[in-house]
């Protein structure tokens, strides 16, 4: 076969294959799993490695070809670039765990305009998304934490709240809900001072806790929304033999908090499972791809009954994990 014939053959086969593509699009897509790529906050960190396990499990279960990507350092501008690449690659679904919903608003809109579905997690305020899926409402999460703190404090006394920063949306929404619940239900409890930033880092939590103990000596309860807060505060309480006197609860990562939980320094911790978050994203993606009707009380496969906020396009399932002496070992085995 000479070169000209080869070229002819190639172009014919190209024509045929493209004609097949145009002629039978539905057949092709029913056989091929849809492609879903999820952009997380930061690639390579343990939290999102576990989230990826959930994506993979969901991929098998719901016939999706899943993969995960993310910036090397938590940077919203990098997320925008990654999403732009995915638009160019014409994936079917983009999963997104947004760092800053305002920064990603434009590019999410471009993805939608290109006919790509966008499923977010930890992004109920993300403009333009198809659906956001949350494993707990800010309200329920804050209230659960406050109930635990009130129980440990005997429903009375002064307490303080630590958050990552004063502008971390999630942390502050949870804190709002917790504080509102205290005001409505525990009149003998009192927040000693406005919430403190620092709970994103252990050393800052230690410093803030030390200063709180001096400035507000009547405090008998500490609640932290950021997961490094209970570790830092716990280090201080342990060192000063105050664990019996001051109740400490908050968002915690089981393997990190094990020593403090077992020693009773952290009375109870709370979290949601990143693996379930990944699974939930794929489950909701499949429901949306199949054109399911989203309404409260519906079943999200793998996760149970959901509450739907159809104004903000948020799917909510109730999967708060309580971390205490009884549950911690099983959660650590899960890889958390």
């Amino acid at each position: 076969m000479n070169r000209r014939n080869l070229l002819k053959l190639l172009s014919i086969s190209a024509l045929i294959s493209s004609a097949v593509g145009i002629g039978y699009p539905t057949v092709a897509s029913a056989a091929e799993p849809k492609v879903m790529v999820t952009v997380v906050k930061e690639a390579g960190v343990p939290w999102f490695n576990i989230l990826n396990q959930g994506l993979e499990e969901g991929g098998k279960r719901f016939n999706l070809k899943t993969s995960m990507t993310g910036p090397a350092k938590a940077d919203p501008a990098q997320q925008v670039k990654l999403i732009e690449d995915l638009i160019a690659k014409k994936v079917d679904v983009i999963g997104l765990v947004p760092l800053d919903t305002k920064v990603t608003a434009q590019v999410v809109k471009r993805a939608r305009d290109a006919g790509i579905m966008v499923i977010t997690q930890e992004g109920p305020n993300q403009e333009g998304k198809t659906w956001d899926v949350e494993l707990m409402s800010a309200q329920a999460y804050g209230e659960t934490q406050m109930k635990a703190l009130a129980r440990e404090m005997g429903e009375q006394g002064d307490y303080v709240v630590l958050v990552g920063t004063l502008t971390t949306t999630g942390h502050n929404q949870w804190a709002d809900a917790a504080i509102a619940y205290q005001k409505a239900n525990y009149p003998k409890m009192k927040m000693a001072a406005d919430r403190f930033p620092g709970a994103d880092f252990i050393d800052e939590s230690e410093r803030v806790t030390q200063d709180i103990l001096k400035a507000h000596p009547n405090v008998t309860g500490i609640m932290s929304m950021g997961s490094n807060g209970p570790i830092g505060a716990g280090n201080v309480l342990k060192k000063r033999n105050l664990a019996g006197k001051i109740a400490l609860v908050g968002t915690t990562i089981p393997s990190q908090a094990k020593a403090h939980i077992m020693a009773g320094v952290i009375r109870e911790g709370f979290l949601w499972s990143p693996k379930e978050a990944g699974l939930a994203m794929t489950s909701v993606a499949r429901l949306a791809l199949d054109g399911a009707k989203f309404e409260s009380g519906m079943d999200v496969p793998g996760l149970g009954k959901a509450t739907i906020d159809s104004v903000n396009n948020v799917v909510m399932v109730d999967r708060i994990l309580a971390i205490n002496k009884k549950t911690i070992d099983d959660l650590i085995k899960l890889g958390l």
Binding site: L166, A193, D194, F196, P197, R207, D211, K214, A215
Partner: peptide
């Protein structure tokens, strides 16, 4: 400054 503002009981919103 960091230490003193907390000890004085200044709200975190003001300390920044």
């Amino acid at each position: 400054l960091q230490n003193g503002l907390i000890l004085l009981g200044v709200s975190s919103y003001w300390s920044l």
